[in-house]
């Protein structure tokens, strides 16, 4: 138990030091651009792929389960939209990103730790946390764009699968998409996304930064990081949903 309290303490201490003495501006700018490239741009392919097919599956599943003629066909569009905007894109995607981006962050910082590269930064008088973690936090401020893309592609996937699978007409689906639209649901989704982005940037960094040992431990830390990050995302999801929607 005290172990957990220490962990939580070291996490917040890390955050404090991350926003401590800043790295030279021109260098920081470069680092941020590099992180955007690695963490955001590098993830777009997998995001598009997964969103498209999961969107398709959601729409087909819904279609197969509404065989009752009393229920309007437009429900398929409606249900696809709701599940993608509320849960699939923000939460499910963030957990997939915990696997991709999170373990990448942990292993890259962790291997810098075990090969003394972090010590090298500190010896030079550089605030290594600001140098390493701050650019990742800033880069992940773009994460909501990734999620917006996931929403859009997911709905397109649903539409195409529904229409070309012969389950629903284009008109019915788009009518469903526009049914009972609550703008607040989008606000809710993006608030979640920001929180998840912060978790995604900081928890894996923390796992990597404070790891001990050698190359084998880097692997273990990456796995740990995935577990921690996804558990925290699920918990945060629960809390935010309680606060905002109920």
């Amino acid at each position: 138990m005290t172990g957990y309290i220490e962990d939580i303490g070291s996490y917040f201490l890390m955050l404090k030091r991350t926003f401590g003495s800043f790295t030279k501006r021109s260098v920081l700018k470069e680092l941020i651009l590099k992180e955007i490239d690695d963490l955001i741009i590098g993830s777009l392919g997998i995001v598009v792929f997964i969103s498209f097919f999961v969107g398709g599956v959601i729409s087909i599943q819904t279609a197969l389960n509404v065989s009752n003629p009393i229920i309007p066909k437009s429900l398929i569009g409606f249900a696809t939209r709701q599940s993608i905007i509320l849960e699939f894109a923000p939460t499910f995607m963030s957990i997939i990103m915990a696997g991709k981006v999170g373990s990448f962050i942990t292993s890259s910082i962790g291997s810098m730790r075990v090969t003394e590269q972090i010590d090298a930064l500190e010896v030079m008088g550089i605030n290594s946390l600001n140098y390493l973690v701050f650019p990742k936090i800033i880069a992940l401020l773009c994460f909501p764009f990734v999620i917006a893309l996931a929403m859009f592609i997911g709905i397109c996937g649903g539409l195409l699968a529904g229409v070309y699978g012969g389950f629903i007409t284009y008109t019915d689906f788009t009518a469903g998409l526009q049914e009972d639209f609550e703008p607040f649901h989008l606000v809710y989704a993006f608030i979640k996304t920001f929180v998840f982005a912060f978790i995604l940037a900081t928890v894996p960094s923390w796992q990597g930064y404070y790891m001990k040992g050698g190359a084998l431990e880097v692997g273990k830390a990456s796995t740990n990081s995935f577990v921690w990050t996804s558990v925290l995302i699920i918990l945060a999801n629960f809390i935010i949903t309680q606060l905002l929607l109920s």
Binding site: S21, T115, E116, Q117, A120, M124, G125
Partner: peptide, 24 residues
């Protein structure tokens, strides 16, 4: 103080056991 320590570190060169070159 922190400032003086940072100034001192600019005057220090360190060769680490494994080299500690930045692999990126």
């Amino acid at each position: 103080n922190e400032e003086q320590q940072r100034d001192l570190r600019e005057e220090i060169g360190m060769l680490f056991q494994g080299g500690a070159l930045f692999d990126s």
